[in-house]
Write a protein that binds this DNA or RNA. Structure first.
Length: 473
RNA sequence: GGCCCGUUCGUCUAACGGUUAGGACGCCGGCCUCUCACGCCGGUAAUACGAGUUCGAAUCUCGUACGGGUCACCA
């Protein structure tokens, strides 16, 4: 019905990209991409104390890893720049001057001490609101001052939230906020509004914690003579303890999930589904998310982070990833396990087998490392349990009967093993686990014939025969 | 404490006044089977509480309880 939306993600660069921010960014991105809109990235670094360039880079990196690209932003530019608040000071000054000229804002020379005094003298210090003592004082521009916004004292301010429905707030609960510091840096509410105006943002999609800021910002939009955007306030993501998500309750850094071996799309799928739904569907491709995402199905209540479900999604998407690409992705994780030399063909064969068995790339790597490790170190407990003298003898005899198998593929191998068992009157169970431990060093692995095939004849025979003397640890 | 928001299985959620309250993750059992995983089958488990409106309420209204957000010259 309307023209394509213009949305923004506006993090403050005071740390890494965390889970909550990532979901906010994702919902903005999905909304824009699903409707041919624009996604703007703006850096809100108006707090000089806390903002760092490193954080900005980390946020870019997190967004890029998730695949959330932006149409305008500090690094790519755009027609509404600059996109860093610290570079937009002139704009805030101009806007504030205009408001002052129109008597919609004023200079205030009250000091922090003045404020503290007034607060403690008020009947209920916790409910203290700045009483506007400088409103009519005509504080000269050359005395140290902040700029305060003239907030209406009566009436109500309300909006139809895309997620929460109608919200109304009595204006008497608002106060004359500081919008500009003495050093010219804007405060959050003002900077965001001026930027949203300049950048033509028409949908503000952000966390629940901003609901209280919305009426103030609406008043500022109106004072600047601009229509306010639509607002969508996303519920919080809670930790498994149902408290606000924090480091204490689990991993909150997006890049940490990358380093832990999660596929970015698994995280995207999970993030999309925490707080939004589409009937009974759990698995979504990116294209489906873009096509189906809308606010009518965004939940109004907070959602608890469910690491197990992320794992399930992650294992699903690992199984869906084509083997060659997956092999590329697993390489760095193999490297950090000390595996450097893995022939491409065997690597891909190993990945194809292990893909069904891994929740993360990290698990995938540790699941296939045994193919490439030399010497293979047998898990002590596994070896002790399955490789007694009889078993060792059987495993060595098995090696003997595999010597002439050709080609060394699962089918022929299985036939040779069957023949071996028949000639000795054994059941597969009698040798399988011992062979498995000899070949892989552990008690769990893909099917034996598949493992042997990947290992190749030489590798297979060497491991079966070397089990007796293989290092254990 | 003021203001604002929220409340369906343990968790994510479906249901948009009429369903035996559905699905998914997890968990438990079974099948498959050389182990593990995958897959398949089955099971466990929820409308916070109380009034009201209605022929009929998880759905609408009010209250209570509980939870959360926020009260900065942070964002």
């Amino acid at each position: 019905m309307a023209s394509p939306p213009v949305v923004r993600f506006a993090p403050s660069p005071t740390g890494y990209l965390h889970i909550g921010g990532a979901r906010t960014a994702l919902y903005n991105w999905l909304y824009a991409r699903g409707r041919g809109g624009r996604f703007v990235l703006r850096i809100e670094d108006s707090d000089q104390e806390r903002s760092t360039p490193e954080s900005e880079v980390a946020i870019f990196e997190g967004l890029r890893w998730l695949g959330l690209d932006w149409d305008e932003g500090p690094d790519v530019g755009g027609p509404h720049g600059p996109y860093r608040q610290s570079e937009r000071l002139e704009r805030y000054r101009q806007a504030a001057d205009r408001l002052i000229a129109e008597r919609k804002a004023y200079r205030c020379s009250c000091t922090a001490e003045d404020l503290a005094r007034m607060r403690s003298a008020s009947p209920d210090p916790r409910a203290f609101r700045y009483p506007g003592v400088c409103r009519d004082r005509a504080v000269p521009a050359d005395v140290r001052h902040v700029v305060r916004f003239v907030m209406p004292a009566t009436g109500t301010t309300g909006w139809d939230d895309l997620v929460k429905g109608r919200i109304e707030v009595a204006n008497e609960t608002l106060q004359d906020e500081v919008i500009l510091r003495p050093n010219g840096l804007p405060l959050y509410n003002f900077g965001a509004v001026v930027d949203d105006v300049d950048m033509e943002i028409d949908h503000v999609i952000r966390g629940d914690d901003h609901v209280v800021n919305t009426p103030r910002q609406i008043q500022m939009f109106r004072a600047l003579g601009r229509p306010e955007p639509r607002f969508a306030h996303l519920p919080m993501i809670l930790g498994e303890d149902k408290k606000k998500l924090s480091k204490r309750t689990g991993t909150v850094s997006v890049l940490q999930y990358r380093d832990d071996g999660y596929l970015p799309h698994a995280l995207v799928n999970f993030l999309a589904r925490i707080g939004w739904s589409h009937g009974d569907q759990e698995i979504f491709t990116l294209g489906e998310l873009v096509a189906k995402f809308d606010f009518d199905a965004v939940s109004a209540s907070g959602g608890v982070w469910n690491a197990k479900k992320l794992d399930w999604l992650s294992s699903h998407w690992i199984r869906q990833t084509p083997v060659p690409g997956l092999a590329d992705l697993v390489l760095p994780f193999l490297g950090s396990l000390g595996v450097a030399d893995c022939p491409r063909e065997r690597l891909e064969a190993a990945v194809a087998l292990q893909r069904e068995r891994a929740k993360t790339l990290k698990e995938l790597a540790s699941g296939i490392a045994f193919y490439f490790q030399r010497p293979l170190v047998l898990e002590a407990k596994a070896a002790e349990k399955t490789l007694d003298a009889d078993a060792l003898a059987r495993v060595e005899a098995l090696a003997q009967s595999l010597e002439l198998v050709a080609p060394f593929d699962p089918g022929p191998i299985e036939a040779a093993v069957a023949e071996f068992l028949r000639s000795r009157g054994l059941e597969l169970k009698a040798v399988a686990q011992a062979a498995r431990v000899a070949l892989t060093g552990r008690t769990q692995s893909p099917g034996l014939y598949d493992v042997m095939s990947v290992l190749g004849r030489d590798g297979t025979l060497a491991r079966l025969r070397g089990a007796r003397t293989a290092p254990r640890g």
